Amino acid sequence: MKNYWRIYVLLFFLILACEDNKKTAPDKTNTTNKTIQLKDSIPEVQPEIIVRDKEGIADPSYEKITNKNVVEFLTEYGKENPETRVRVTTAHGDIEIELYEDTPLHRANFIYLVKQKYFFGTFFHRVVPNFIIQAGNSDNRGTTKKRAQIGKDYLLPAELDNGRIHQYGTISGAKEYRENPDKRTAPFEFFIFLGPKAATGHLNGNYTIFGRVTKGMDVVEKIANLPKDEGDWPLENIYIDAEIIQ
């Protein structure tokens, strides 16, 4: 009798264990569905991943740009690459740019950065409504690596002799603020001006204007008015890329 009772108890726990396994066993159909939903939720463009794939963008046939060779390098490069029109793409629309030929070093530098894919995955990282939006920087490690490959320490000589002033849609180089009496330009960042003439007092004659927006100022205005933090950095990264039009 005792043996029958033991067998009964053993069968009871075996049945109970089977029931628990059924409850905890993963539903393969549901798992598959969740995976599909997760993939569908990923944005079409994942800039951080793409940037990592394209970190090694610098053409090894070009030497690094330094303050010693910057004028010679960009003068020669400008002769070989005469393009003046660039399209900057964002998730909010495209911005088309014309580069001025009478600022040859800035034009050549911008074309060089575009062809080296420097801007790919960088941001419009400063937005100030009714004033400027600024691009060419990011907090991605890939951007730091790209700068190191191209030449992280060089500055562009100012090109201010053309007498231009900041107007709606002009494009200027961001200025190096450390001891910089020659008003040299930091080569990797640029800003588009939106503000009134009253806001140009400290800009005119201090920042090299090397181009203008020919199409897409509505996009510029939209970006300028996006939510931002106290440091004027947009709350949502505004990734950009740039390509030569002609």
Results as ranks from 00 to 15, higher is better:
101 E>N: 14
87 R>G: 07
84 T>C: 14
115 K>T: 10
79 K>N: 11
57 I>V: 12
115 K>C: 02
98 E>V: 13
112 Y>D: 03
67 N>S: 13
114 V>C: 04
66 T>W: 00
89 T>W: 01
124 F>V: 15
61 S>P: 00
49 I>M: 13
48 E>F: 08
61 S>I: 13
122 T>Q: 14
61 S>N: 07
105 L>M: 09
122 T>M: 11
54 K>R: 12
44 E>K: 08
103 T>S: 12
114 V>W: 02
67 N>Y: 11
83 E>V: 04
71 V>G: 02
115 K>G: 02
108 A>V: 01
63 E>G: 10
118 Y>D: 08
111 I>K: 02
68 K>Y: 09
120 F>C: 01
98 E>A: 12
57 I>C: 06
109 N>W: 01
73 F>K: 04
119 F>A: 06
89 T>P: 00
79 K>M: 07
54 K>I: 14
44 E>W: 00
108 A>S: 15
115 K>L: 06
68 K>C: 00
62 Y>R: 08
93 G>A: 08
120 F>D: 15
63 E>L: 06
113 L>G: 05
107 R>L: 11
95 I>Q: 05
84 T>K: 15
84 T>D: 14
59 D>W: 03
128 V>G: 03
82 P>C: 04
104 P>M: 09
94 D>M: 05
68 K>T: 13
118 Y>H: 08
59 D>P: 03
104 P>N: 04
103 T>P: 02
96 E>K: 15
63 E>I: 10
99 L>V: 09
58 A>L: 09
59 D>A: 10
80 E>C: 00
80 E>G: 00
53 D>A: 09
77 Y>K: 03
76 E>G: 11
59 D>M: 06
94 D>V: 03
52 R>Q: 15
71 V>Q: 03
108 A>G: 01
99 L>T: 11
125 H>C: 10
106 H>I: 10
99 L>Q: 05
62 Y>L: 06
91 A>T: 11
64 K>N: 09
130 N>S: 14
109 N>G: 05
123 F>A: 07
67 N>F: 09
49 I>Y: 13
81 N>C: 04
119 F>E: 02
110 F>M: 10
107 R>C: 05
97 I>S: 02
99 L>F: 09
124 F>G: 05
100 Y>N: 03
93 G>R: 10
62 Y>H: 14
97 I>E: 05
67 N>V: 11
92 H>W: 14
46 Q>K: 13
46 Q>S: 13
50 I>N: 07
129 P>F: 06
51 V>D: 14
79 K>S: 06
84 T>A: 15
97 I>Y: 04
123 F>L: 14
100 Y>T: 03
62 Y>V: 07
98 E>R: 13
73 F>P: 01
122 T>P: 07
120 F>G: 04
48 E>D: 13
121 G>S: 07
124 F>N: 12
55 E>R: 12
100 Y>R: 03
49 I>H: 05
77 Y>D: 00
59 D>F: 06
83 E>Y: 10
69 N>F: 13
109 N>K: 06
45 V>F: 02
64 K>M: 12
109 N>R: 06
121 G>I: 09
58 A>R: 14
55 E>Y: 07
52 R>S: 15
99 L>N: 05
110 F>D: 02
127 V>Y: 03
51 V>R: 14
103 T>L: 05
